[in-house]
Amino acid sequence: MITYFLCLVLFSIGLFCAVRKRNIIKIIIGIGIMEYAVNLFFILIGYRAQGRSPILARDQAITNIVDPLPQAVALTAIVIGLAVMLMLVALAIRIYERYGTFDITKINRLKE
């Protein structure tokens, strides 16, 4: 249980950074940490104590592999996370060219 809990603490650190920081790059770093934590949580869910990695050997009988389905899910999620990071950084670079700053409190031309 402590392992799950530490993973969720990592998620909370990322969430705090994404929500409370002023610099755009810090916000992006926060979202990145959140995504890492969720992917790790998937793998922790699937782990079997004294398990083997899910690669079969041709001559051995395999009885205790770790769960391969969360690993496939996490592979897809890692790639989607990379795509989101690419998108956010590209948007941030373009915003810097237009506004001249990375401060999110100053990037506020849209009034209520």
Partner: peptide, 21 residues
């Protein structure tokens, strides 16, 4: 790619990404 469009898109992207997580 005007200034306010980029800003709107970025704020939408941040909130949407947190929701997806």
């Amino acid at each position: 790619t005007e200034a306010d469009e980029l800003e709107a898109s970025f704020k939408y992207a941040i909130m949407g990404s947190v929701a997806s997580c």
